[in-house]
């Protein structure tokens, strides 16, 4: 089953893309230099020097620790104490969905970042396809038994987007039923995958991330890796149409191999009330040690946004259009996955 079915698609014009990205980048640098010089010097810093692979952002080259100022740890300590002071007195803000921006920035992201940078060494492409302002719906494939791909996607958008946008993920109801998990998910800005919440977030101009495959994608056997499952019932398309925001297709390569799921203990899953119970070569066998994911090398590619503002408001109720757009998004993600697989040297490097 290896990667034999990979279909190399017509070499897409890389040179053109590269050129386009360079101008974007120049724009961004210019903006950062002139538009808001005092407040946000960060985007300018984050632009990495023209590296060996133009058009890609290498996580290892950047991050807060890259440029420690003199006495940086002292300032950090003071910041930490200020943070602690706000936390113990409860003087921080959360939004209607329970998103705690400060906790996410200072704690949750710092915990996820080493996994993202050092363990999975995520490479991000096409981040500029997410608009700097206004709502957007990022639609991604879903895989890897545990939804680590969602978390990595959130870090990718947060750390690499010039406007430092925070991705608001839509999670399954199981996430919000589990104690502790639901609390953390809400604080990290996630909410239940339902049309009402998604619409409200998009109307507020947030970037919303959705994985329409759901558990079908997450818990599919290893033999079916990189084969997209059914995209739900296409509800995400009608939500995007109603909110008139672009759909950004996103392909994640590398998450499929973190837990090679060779079996599914259905009876046990039913007993525990879970959608599936994974059996990997290591998992129930080695106990908790088996739950350590394999250190695969990841690539996250954001595709060209699909605009939805050209459709009339009634279009959201047209099932035919819905199916067509759903298929279009699905095909785009699938083709990008195949292309990235062809380019990939190895699963681990």
């Amino acid at each position: 089953m290896a990667d034999a079915k990979v279909i190399p698609f017509g070499e897409e014009p890389r040179s053109r893309r590269r050129a386009a990205r360079r101008t974007d980048r120049a724009d961004a640098a210019e903006r950062a230099g002139t538009g808001r010089p005092a407040l946000k010097p960060v985007p300018a810093q984050r632009e990495d020097p023209p590296g060996p692979v133009p058009g890609t952002v290498r996580p290892a080259d950047e991050g807060e620790g890259a440029r420690p100022a003199a006495g940086g740890w002292e300032r950090k300590l003071a910041q930490g104490l200020n943070f602690l002071r706000r936390r113990v007195t409860g003087e921080y803000e959360v939004d209607d969905f329970g998103y705690d921006a400060e906790l996410t920035e200072q704690v949750l992201m710092s915990l996820l970042r080493p996994v993202y940078e050092k363990y999975f060494r995520v490479e991000v492409k096409g981040i500029e396809n997410i608009p700097d302002t206004g709502g957007a719906l990022v639609v991604s494939n879903h895989s890897g038994v545990l939804p680590l791909d969602g978390l990595m996607l959130q870090v990718a958008v947060h750390d690499h987007h010039p406007a430092e946008r925070n991705l608001r993920l839509l999670g399954a109801d199981l996430v919000f039923m589990l104690p502790v998990v639901n609390e953390l998910a809400r604080k990290a800005g996630h909410t239940l995958a339902c049309a009402e919440d998604a619409q409200l977030l998009l109307e507020r101009g947030e970037v919303v991330g959705v994985m329409p495959e759901g558990f079908k994608g997450l818990g599919k056997p290893f033999s079916q890796r990189y084969k997209l499952q059914r995209f739900g019932r296409g509800g995400f398309v009608s939500t995007a149409l109603r909110a008139r925001v672009p759909i950004v297709p996103c392909s994640i390569v590398g998450a499929e191999e973190i837990y090679p799921m060779v079996g599914n203990a259905r009876t046990l899953a039913r007993l525990l009330g879970l959608p599936y119970f994974p059996v990997t070569p290591t998992f129930p066998l080695l106990g908790p040690l088996g739950a350590v994911p394999l250190p695969t090398k990841w690539t996250i590619q954001f595709g060209e946004p699909i605009p939805t503002d050209g459709y009339s408001p009634e279009a959201a109720d047209d099932p035919m259009l819905m199916f067509n757009l759903t298929d279009q998004v699905r095909e785009t993600i699938q083709h990008t996955l195949y292309r990235l697989l062809v380019q990939r040297r190895s699963v681990f490097f």
């Binding site: 969905f97 329970g98 909410t191 239940l192 009402e196 409200l200």
Partner: peptide
């Protein structure tokens, strides 16, 4: 309930 939307409107 966990399966409810995060924000209720009058018609939910």
């Amino acid at each position: 309930a966990p399966r409810d939307p995060a924000v209720f409107s009058e018609t939910t």
